[in-house]
């Protein structure tokens, strides 16, 4: 249980990082970041097999992760820092001038952990699939992981990539969809309904799993199952139910915290709900 407790403690610290980062620059995207906290914490803490303490852009001989919905950079940056990709104190530079922590993830400033820019939505699955095919060409049996927003699935390029992956039997990828049913203008089901999302991925030829993204035990269990389904001729998708703003009560249940930073009072409330852990604030 020690490891799980540790992951949960990390997740709590990551939530603090997220709200403090966006508060400090009065901008950024806390809602989706908070909703995906358990996923990222588990992914980098336990699920992925990668070279710790070193970063190689080419990623030979290790699992790679691609964030397609780049706006939830706060959670990614926090988890990267908490897993040793760069100093934790660098989180204080988020979205500031001369920082490696751009508003949306970029390779341009050389931030360890990031292998392609994302932010303009819909592009990350294609890139992840390219990396997956390169791994096959190189005889590298490691996996590719990717994360996508649910609203992002409205982009046509996603479905080009979904079709391509199954047709080419790219079975060394696990793509997760953050299904919180929120996007900037409202509920996804109101803005542009995704319909039978599981059925769509299935019909496109993917092996599809479902997961509760805010239950770390369930994340570990389902992602382990997802890993066991790789290498069998089909790409693997995980539809991950999350709650936008999870862990901060006043941010939950509304799309309004997609891209809004908390004020001083709200920050105090959010931090009180997520006390500082043994990892310490940045």
């Amino acid at each position: 249980m020690t490891e799980k407790v540790s992951l949960q403690e990390t997740a709590q610290q990551v939530r603090r990082d997220i709200v403090r980062m966006v508060h400090a620059v009065n901008s950024g995207h806390p809602g989706g970041s908070l909703g995906c906290t358990e996923f990222f914490t588990a992914l980098y803490g336990q699920i992925m097999d990668y070279k710790r303490g070193e970063f190689h852009p080419d990623g030979h001989g290790e699992d790679l992760f691609f964030l397609s919905n780049g706006h939830i950079s706060p959670v990614w940056y926090s988890v990267l820092a908490r897993n040793g990709f760069f100093p934790v104190k660098e989180l204080s530079t988020f979205r500031k001038i001369d920082s490696r922590l751009q508003g949306h993830p970029a390779t341009h400033e050389g931030l360890p952990g990031v292998r392609v820019a994302s932010g303009s939505l819909g592009q990350g699955l294609s890139v992840a699939l390219g990396a997956a095919q390169a791994k096959k060409l190189n005889g590298d049996r490691h996996l590719i992981y990717s994360l996508h927003g649910d609203g992002e699935l409205q982009e046509g390029q996603i479905w080009e990539a979904v079709m391509y992956a199954a047709a080419n039997k790219i079975d060394n990828i696990i793509s997760t969809v953050d299904y919180n049913n929120r996007q900037i203008d409202g509920d996804v089901s109101d803005v542009l309904d995704l319909g039978d999302l599981k059925g769509k991925w299935h019909a496109f030829g993917w092996d599809v799993l479902e997961m509760n993204g805010n239950d770390i035990d369930n994340v570990l269990k389902v992602m382990a199952e997802a890993k066991s389904r790789t290498g069998k001729g089909k790409p693997v998708a995980v539809i991950m139910r999350t709650e936008m703003g999870n862990g901060v009560d006043f941010m939950m249940g509304s799309h309004k915290w997609h891209g809004v930073a908390p004020n001083d009072e709200q920050l105090a409330s959010a931090l009180a709900q997520n006390p500082e852990t043994s990892l310490g604030d940045y």
Binding site: G59, S126, V127, A131, A134, Y164
Partner: peptide
């Protein structure tokens, strides 16, 4: 890639990550 140019560009970008 089929008639899917956006995906093709993304795939190409991803393949460079493996040294292609």
């Amino acid at each position: 890639t089929g008639i899917a140019e956006a995906n093709m560009i993304g795939l190409a970008a991803g393949m460079t990550i493996g040294g292609k």
